[in-house]
Design a protein around this nucleic acid. Structure first.
Lengths: 210, 210
DNA sequence: TAGATTGTTAATCGATTAACAATC
DNA sequence: TAGATTGTTAATCGATTAACAATC
């Protein structure tokens, strides 16, 4: 397994879950853990945990296991959550407002620095300590504050036009809550999508096939 | 590939996305499509599409392709979205309110029939046409209305206690927005989780490794 | 019929699990 | 040293892709 790159998406997607469990262990005062014990708690195999971690380096110690705090910090660094990136949110509707208020951005490697909407009723309102700005101000704001990413909480139809515009303004990643399939639109742009209705339909399937 | 069951989770998770693309095709008036053309639009291989669909049956016609409307309806049936199930939402905070208002439940196989919270400020308030009920009323409500599933928008710490209670009340599935790892808690209970901070950290990783 | 495209089997690829030597 | 547990290689398993005969 090459230490450098070529990490599979499956591995990456498991890292935040490791982090969650390690945080709980930290809180409960557990300082070391074996892959066997962690696997048991997370419903994984010890092999998988060791394979996953060894994609990035040898974080354990033979005969001892893993130091919880050290491992927690290392995984945090791998995810880049120690590198706080500025992010803006587009679309301060129901969902946009909730996402703006709900998330602890700093915990996850971001700082929310601006909210934008085009509806006159929303513009000027305070949402979680930030004022909702007119979309008209987007260009000037981005030139000045250089956000790295944008959270899209706008309707599907508006996405391609807005995302093109944002890429032009230097945005390097999207957290996409729309139904629009943004994943394969750009090269060199990170896209992470949350398709809530896909998730709800998956639940429907499972309920109907219990 | 057995037509009956043993469908892998990877396949299930792709079905809602097929549905989204088919809906767009329908809207644009396209009545038939080949696996090749659909694959091209979805950034998949034609093989994968044919394999996926043939887990459930032969929906296509040799030499012709697939009838868009028929395929759309069949995938909908597989996902069970034609079978509307009653669902309740627990936790009418920022996120809970947004999820209550935002989703088109009927489109995804559900009907939202009740909202619950334990905060005196929220109880009695109207959220998207439903009144927020006191958690005290949960037992009576469930006995009367028999919700099939519950949406959890409550803090991590409260989840195990509340979910145990709901399972006791006959809830068969959870749409879990909390940080609590519910996936392996119960047998015979469907769990679909939306871990927003996991998703945000994944974006952080990708941005830091462009 | 000839052309197109499926359904399905076979081949490949990648991810997970098992095994074990290295080493604390 | 003996016991534990990692890091890593090898084996297995599952998912994706390719190929092609069936058939519209």
């Amino acid at each position: 397994m090459p230490k450098g790159q070529n990490i599979s998406v499956s591995v990456i997607k498991r890292l935040p879950r490791y982090l969650r469990f390690l945080k709980d262990l930290l809180k409960s005062g557990i300082t070391r853990i074996s892959s066997r014990e962690l696997a048991h708690r997370m419903n994984l195999t010890a092999s998988q945990i060791r394979q996953d971690l060894n994609c990035f380096g040898g974080f354990g110690l033979q005969g001892y296991g893993y130091n919880v705090e050290y491992l927690y910090n290392e995984i945090g660094k791998i995810l880049g959550i120690d590198n706080i990136l500025p992010v803006i949110l587009i679309g301060a509707g129901n969902l946009g407002k909730a996402i703006a208020r709900q998330m602890d951005y700093e915990e996850n490697g971001f700082k929310l620095i601006g909210l934008f909407d085009n509806s006159p009723e929303m513009i000027g309102k305070d949402v979680g300590g930030l004022v909702v700005r007119d979309m008209e101000e987007l260009d000037g704001f981005c030139q000045q504050h250089r956000p790295a990413a944008a959270i899209l909480c706008i309707p599907k139809e508006q996405v391609p036009q807005v995302s093109d515009h944002l890429v032009g303004l230097g945005i390097k990643g999207f957290w996409n809550f729309s139904h629009y399939d943004l994943a394969n639109s750009y090269d060199g742009i990170a896209v992470e999508s949350v398709h809530l209705s896909d998730s709800l339909m998956t639940l429907s399937y499972h309920l109907n096939n219990l």
